[in-house]
Design a protein around this nucleic acid. Structure first.
Lengths: 151, 151
DNA sequence: GACATATAGTTAGTTATGCAACTAATATAA
DNA sequence: TTATATTAGTTGCATAACTAACTATATGTC
């Protein structure tokens, strides 16, 4: 994967952190076309587990911009599809650590390709510099609204 | 309302056209704090009716980036709260024209103020030029994904 | 050790989203 | 003018979002 391509794909998580998007719908459509039966919301959780397996539900919620309740149900559904399992932490039994199953692991490659392909469609005719500005601004908007009293 | 302030507020509709956001959540919170019992999704519909009353459901769907089904149910809920009424078009009886009620009309002022205030929080420390880039890029992303086979 | 407080996660209730299949009304074409 | 296709809107089904209230475990203080 070229470094440039992947950096473009990251914009998705920023935009998606902000909203349900045309990008999200297109990615969902591309998943379906490829025969993948996962929602982009489920994918956003898997995405972070592929980067670091065994995160707590709370940590997953923070990284995917979700509250506890939404995270619980997303993981309920992921567990139903046998894509993840919950394991109670030994240090602190309040905590559920979430692990990828062998079913989920091979999905990383194909979904990354679909995400890259989708972002290339979305970012056609948009320059690297513009993308940097958008990422930067949306992050600052998010920070402005979450640093103080929210969360 | 200063022209500059209002142009800033418009970013909301672009960002929101793309996603459910920290901005959306903050605006929802500000509505609640002000005692307004409407969701930001409902507000996005009212927003377009304040600009032009009596739009069809389909047209409202296009302007708010929703499909027909979602638009139907949003308007169901708005009608339940007596904020809008549906009137069958005389020219084409398939079409429902959606009109604001006297209950909805006075909400324009206060919700615009809350939206402006929210955008000022969100866009603190972000320049006019950056905002222009973000609006422009998100619009082009949307166009890239909707011009051809989607919609 | 006992009681209050904080934290991680779950559940209930409401709203919203998307897709697909449907109804009713209108437009097109033979 | 009748049959066919298109269009506007609705409904059923599944997933997902947020708030608020809840359970269970852990921490802190007296």
């Amino acid at each position: 994967m070229s470094n440039n391509q992947f950096k473009r794909g990251e914009l998705y998580s920023v935009i998606n952190g902000m909203a349900t998007t045309a990008v999200a719908r297109r990615l969902q459509k591309n998943f379906r076309k490829a025969g993948l039966d996962i929602t982009i919301e489920q994918w956003s959780v898997l995405y972070h587990l592929w980067k670091e397996d065994g995160l707590s539900q709370l940590e997953l919620g923070i990284r995917t911009f979700r509250d506890k309740a939404s995270t619980t149900r997303l993981i309920d559904n992921l567990e139903k599809q046998e894509l993840v399992i919950r394991v109670a932490s030994k240090e602190d039994r309040r905590i559920n650590l979430v692990y990828l199953t062998d079913i989920a692991k091979p999905l990383q490659q194909i979904t990354y390709e679909l995400a890259n392909q989708t972002m290339n469609e979305a970012l056609l005719n948009i320059t690297k510099e513009e993308i940097e500005v958008v990422k930067n601004v949306l992050q600052r908007v998010y920070d402005n609204l979450t640093s103080k009293d929210l969360i």
